[in-house]
Design a protein around this nucleic acid. Structure first.
Length: 264
DNA sequence: ATGGTAGCGTAGCTA
């Protein structure tokens, strides 16, 4: 089973690139973040025509929005709200074989790395705290689960272009890295991509639109993740970042698709 | 230290 997560930054702006990714990668399941479209305006038809007849979405006007797009049946679908908001950041579904799939878009957190001065950073940290408490109540690592998405945190030294220069930059500050590590430890999640790419090698899933040349400056961050529970970690077969998608024309997303294959 | 780009929706927020 091949699962791909991608922060697409508007599905309507990038439907052609989504179809290109599907033609090239043939995933069984696609999890999107930042679809930026209400459910009634979500472009279902081109995806159904590609063979993805099982689609679960939660979208709102302008911001956020998540989608699970599958050629395998989805059962037990639902939406999870955090921090008392209904802001379309987390949906889930069950896949064949009883695998529970969660697609999450964690808040970015704004610019100022101080939760007192910056309400957006406060929200991000509360979001992480709530998830840390929730997972052990919801399930144990003995359940086959996959959690994917744009977590907006690059936890490891080589998940950013410069560990030293990123210490005070939101996405790599010690406080949020510590919370992401606690989230990972909550029920023993495995960071799938780092089982395939050693932690001493640079690995990025996002490059800013603001760079003059994203490829030559290569100031990336690994914000997008695929985690699996211990029940599935032995089934991981392949995991890759589709770096070339950052250059797809005419208008690439600032994030690239991240893919894993599971022998299930 | 600053500003750089993109999307939504048509001003200014979010990233």
């Amino acid at each position: 089973m091949k699962i791909i997560t991608w922060n697409i930054n508007s599905i309507r702006m990038r439907m052609d690139l989504l179809v290109k990714m599907i033609d090239q990668q043939q995933p069984d399941v696609i999890c999107l973040q930042e679809t930026k479209v209400t459910n009634d305006a979500f472009p279902l038809k081109p995806l159904v025509d590609c063979g993805y007849g099982h689609i679960h979405i939660a979208g709102m006007k302008s911001y956020n929005g998540v989608a699970i797009i599958s050629r395998l049946p989805l059962t037990q679908v639902g939406v999870k709200n955090w921090c008392g908001r209904q802001d379309c950041r987390h949906i889930f579904a069950e896949l064949p074989g009883g695998i529970e799939l969660h697609n999450v878009y964690i808040p970015s957190g704004g610019d100022i790395p101080d939760p007192v001065l910056n309400e957006k950073f406060h929200h991000k940290l509360r979001f992480l705290d709530e998830m840390i408490d929730w997972w052990p109540q919801h399930r144990s690592g003995g359940r086959a689960m996959v959690m994917v998405g744009d977590f907006n945190v690059a936890p490891l030294e080589h998940d950013v272009w410069s560990h030293a220069q990123m210490r005070d930059v939101i996405s790599h500050t010690p406080i949020e890295v510590e919370k992401l590590n606690r989230l990972q430890a909550s029920i023993g999640w495995t960071d799938s991509l780092r089982t395939f790419v050693p932690s001493d090698r640079k690995l990025y899933s996002w490059w800013s639109y603001r760079a003059r040349d994203w490829e030559s400056s290569d100031r990336g961050r690994r914000l997008d993740h695929i985690w699996v529970t211990p029940a599935l970690s032995g089934s991981l077969r392949r995991g890759v970042h589709l770096r070339e998608a950052r250059g797809w024309l005419p208008k690439p997303s600032d994030h690239v698709p991240v893919s894993v294959e599971l022998a299930v």
